[in-house]
């Protein structure tokens, strides 16, 4: 069972080896002339102002939370899609109801303005 994943593991090893070899090679032959200015963050040639570790409001946090909810609901659709033929009328009605309930929640979220920006 897990044997099917062995080729993927081999590909991971090949890919990591490729990355390490090219990065090592590059750090060996590349020039090394570091200076304080060169190592400061790029801000269009001006002196950097402040730090990038400030806190600021991420406008889409609510959508991010909704994404998790809807993504989990989408996951439920996959097993149903596989067994669709076997489940017959029962499966169709059940999933029809599920998607309709999903739609009701979706319309509620939309009408509440959670998908808006301001």
């Amino acid at each position: 069972m897990l044997g099917a994943y062995l080729p993927i593991l081999l590909l991971v090893i090949v890919a990591i080896a490729f990355g390490l070899v090219s990065l090592t090679f590059s750090s060996l032959i590349g020039p090394k002339k570091k200076s304080a200015l060169k190592l400061s963050p790029y801000e269009s040639g001006c002196e950097p102002v402040g730090t990038a570790r400030d806190r600021f409001s991420i406008k889409f946090y609510l959508i991010a939370m909704l994404f998790i909810l809807f993504d989990i609901e989408a996951v439920f659709l996959y097993p149903w899609a596989i067994l669709y033929k076997k489940l017959g009328v029962f499966g169709l009605v059940e999933m029809g109801l599920f998607i309709v309930i999903l739609f009701v929640g979706y319309i509620y979220v939309w009408k509440k303005g959670a998908l808006e920006w301001e």
Binding site: L23, S26, S27, G30, P31, K32, A36, K38, L39
Partner: peptide, 12 residues
């Protein structure tokens, strides 16, 4: 060209 460039890691 990419291989012979300086490998910079910003100080911060």
């Amino acid at each position: 060209k990419l291989l012979t460039k300086e490998d910079l890691v910003p100080a911060a």
